[in-house]
Design a binder for these strands. Sequence first.
DNA 1: CGCGACGTTGATTTGCCTCAACGATTGTGG
DNA 2: CCACAATCGTTGAGGCAAATCAACGTCGCG
Lengths: 204, 204
Amino acid sequence: MHQEIKDRFTVMIDFFNSIIPLKQEEKELIRQYFYLRSYKKRMFVLQEGDVCQHLNFVLSGCLRMYKDDENGNPHILLFATEGSWINDLDSYYEQKKSLLNIDVLENAELLQISREDIVKLYLTAPKFDRIFRILTERNLVILQNRMLENISLSAEERYYNLLSSHPDLINRIPQVHIASYLGVSAEFISRLRSRRARNPLMGN
Amino acid sequence: MHQEIKDRFTVMIDFFNSIIPLKQEEKELIRQYFYLRSYKKRMFVLQEGDVCQHLNFVLSGCLRMYKDDENGNPHILLFATEGSWINDLDSYYEQKKSLLNIDVLENAELLQISREDIVKLYLTAPKFDRIFRILTERNLVILQNRMLENISLSAEERYYNLLSSHPDLINRIPQVHIASYLGVSAEFISRLRSRRARNPLMGN
DNA sequence: CGCGACGTTGATTTGCCTCAACGATTGTGG
DNA sequence: CCACAATCGTTGAGGCAAATCAACGTCGCG
């Protein structure tokens, strides 16, 4: 089972490697600084009011990051599945109380790193500054495209765009969460689906 | 006037310095790689279909980045004024044709750097990897907050939030562009304003 | 079994859009 | 320097997209 854990690290090392190839010593640093933690469904990785203590890389499972409004309704900023990250960077770097929640939709295994350790990692291996720069730039581009869709498309267009760009998500995430992610009501998504089911030719 | 140009660089150097203090040699690199360029109102810094050739740091003036939809209506992703950046990172790094436009709302002076030169900059001074990582992380946090507002607040709330968080923008940018940035119609913004003018106590 | 999570459907309301017309201001060329 | 066009904001009438509220059926699960 120590072997197993090494295998998990391999997933993360491959991830970094695909951005910039790592030297052996840099791979060792990853094994040194990241730690494996499992979460069960409904557990919180981060709760509103806490200070975010680690970056989270998802090995398996599914999570969401969201904010509750004054009525207690969640508004989902991000889903994360295998091979992606889910962090409240603001709380993590500024060490301020988070306004966001991260919880588990499907039992999950995460690789985590503390703030002190990532600072050490950056200092001992500056390549990780570059890796995380590139990673963050890519996430910014993705978020910018989502922003653009949000200000320019109808709810129906956004829903079917998501459907075609992330068909995997639709299969494993309840509609009510998809609705919250898109910023529309769950009932409206249901109506869109039944409308298209009755008339498959509609809306391209 | 060579003196003047040096002064412009000082603005940028101060900007970087406030993120991470620079050594003298790193300051020299900035003077070496960035170049000053002036744009007049209505000029394009980037046009749809072109490949983004430089990163843009705004010394003065005001610009917007936007996408035209199929009807030719612009949807604004970002405004940039003194001391901020405005880039299509996707086109810049991937060297693909841009879907976005960047044009000038008020005569502007930019400091620009080409893709080849920023790669050199990263190689000769890895500190810039860290600086741009941090910069990008901050921009991601900002965009994430805007995303959250967009999926959780009404048009009215978004408008007055923008008003209080960026009062400067409201004074220099036409309402029609503010509307496009928020993803609402210009007429509706006008109605919000006149509603509150008649009844100043409304909506907190 | 019974409860909670999830999806659906109907009736009604509303936030916001569209289209159109109209001043006020700016700027631009003859 | 004036005339005319373009830009910008406002207002009205009408319409539609999407929210809200409520009820109900199904499923999985403790």
